[in-house]
Every structure is written in structure tokens, then in C-alpha cells.
């Protein structure tokens, strides 16, 4: 086919898709993960005396840290929907939750007696924590990546990873209201592992689904 003919055909092919609205897309992602986390909390219930517990800084951190991670990752993922988008210096924001997590982990490790440090790590506790965060995040993550197909990410793997990070961070935020593991060594490690797993899966799916 001659390129001239192709252009004539393209020009005559009708209207473009609706303009991309990252904000609207982001709101739909938020709604999806809020629905999943809300459903989980409705079925499983929040932990007892939640309000009193959240007044304790180390327990509040369990909720706020993944929320902070999501607040950074999700907008960056949405930004990647446009061709040629870069993260650049905005990636430095990740240093904030990351350094907080590392400091808190190291400080807790140093202050805790060796026998107690990992005493709460049981097969059940692990599969409950990691499994439920992944379970809450899975469908919203898939939904979010499907929404992102309306965009044109020229770095699809990164776009997927960031969105997965954001969705999993929000899922962990919701899960933390149920979770009674208040040892930072436990929740930093295993929330981190669950969020990393969802993000890795989203990166792999992004490379497939967001390529155009």
C-alpha cells in the first residue's frame, strides 16, 4: 500500500478515541482498590480498638507508610500513560518511604532481643499477611492495567510496575486496619514482600498489555 493512500484512509477513518484523562483514570483505579479493600474489611472486620491503636505511632506507621508509597507511585504510573513521559527527579520521592522503612527496620532490630525479633513469623501469619494483601490487590491491579491500555506508554514495563506499586500500597493500607502484627520487623518485611510481588507481576503484565 502506498503511504499516500494510507494517510487518506486514516484521515477518513472517523473520530479519535476520547482524549486521555489521567485524573479520571486515577479516580477509577482508586475506586476499584477502595471497593476491594472495603469489601475485605466488611467481611473480615477491622481489628479491635482500631482508633486507640492508630494513636500509637508505630501502628499508625503500618497504615501510613504504604499509603505514602501509593501516593507517590500511582500518579507516576498515570503520568507514564503518555508517550515519552519521564519520571526524572520525581523518583527521588521514593527515597522518603524507603529510608523511613529502612531506618525503622534497623532501629527495631537493634532494640529487640534476638529471641523476640522474628518470633511472630509463622507459616500462618506469613500466608495471611502476604496472601491477603495480594488477594486484595490482584483484581484492582488487573483492572488498572486494562484502563492504562487507553494510553500509549512507551515504557510499558515501568508503567505497569509503578501502577502495581500504587495499587498494592493501597491494598496494604486497607489490610493494615485488620492486621494485628504490630512488630515493624514483621510488617515492614512482609508488607514489603507482598507489595513487591504485586508490582513485579504488574511489570510483567504491563510489558505485555501496554505494548502497542
Amino acid at each position: 500500500m502506498r503511504t499516500e493512500d494510507l494517510i487518506a484512509e486514516l484521515a477518513a477513518s472517523g473520530p479519535a478515541a476520547p482524549a486521555l484523562t489521567p485524573r479520571g483514570t486515577g479516580l477509577r483505579m482508586l475506586a476499584a482498590v477502595a471497593l476491594a479493600a472495603g469489601l475485605f474489611l466488611m467481611l473480615a472486620g477491622t481489628r479491635a480498638d482500631l482508633a486507640a491503636r492508630l494513636a500509637e505511632p508505630l501502628i499508625l506507621t503500618k497504615t501510613l507508610l504504604p499509603a505514602m508509597l501509593a501516593a507517590i507511585a500511582l500518579p507516576l504510573g498515570l503520568r507514564m500513560m503518555r508517550p515519552g513521559a519521564r519520571i526524572g527527579r520525581a523518583a527521588l520521592w521514593f527515597a522518603l518511604p524507603a529510608s523511613l522503612a529502612v531506618l525503622l527496620w534497623a532501629a527495631t532490630f537493634a532494640r529487640t532481643a534476638p529471641a523476640v525479633r522474628f518470633a511472630d513469623v509463622t507459616a500462618f501469619a506469613l500466608s495471611e499477611c502476604v496472601g491477603l494483601i495480594i488477594a486484595i490487590a490482584a483484581l484492582p491491579m488487573v483492572f488498572a492495567l486494562r484502563l492504562m491500555r487507553a494510553g500509549a506508554a512507551t515504557r510499558p514495563r515501568l508503567a505497569g510496575a509503578l501502577t502495581g506499586l500504587g495499587i498494592a500500597g493501597l491494598a496494604a493500607t486497607g489490610y493494615s486496619l485488620f492486621c494485628t502484627q504490630d512488630n515493624p520487623l514483621f510488617y515492614l518485611t512482609w508488607y514489603g514482600a507482598a507489595i513487591a510481588a504485586v508490582s513485579a507481576a504488574a511489570a510483567a503484565l504491563g510489558a505485555r498489555w501496554l505494548a502497542f
Binding site: L10, P83, A150
Partner: peptide, 30 residues
């Protein structure tokens, strides 16, 4: 022609507040 088809399919992803050239080159390069 493949580049033109991609521009066609993704023409709604251009942000009218941003210049066209970087958007265009990003799709072309990809």
C-alpha cells in the same frame, strides 16, 4: 507506515497543553 498507524491509534494521548514534537518522536522512536 507502522509509525503512522501507531500515531493514528494513539492520537488521543497527545496532551493539547504540551508540544507535539516530543510526543510524536516518542511514538516514532518506540
Amino acid at each position: 507506515q507502522e509509525v503512522l498507524l501507531a500515531i493514528h491509534a494513539k492520537r488521543h494521548t497527545w496532551d493539547p497543553a504540551a508540544p507535539v514534537a516530543p510526543w510524536l518522536y516518542a511514538i516514532a522512536r518506540y
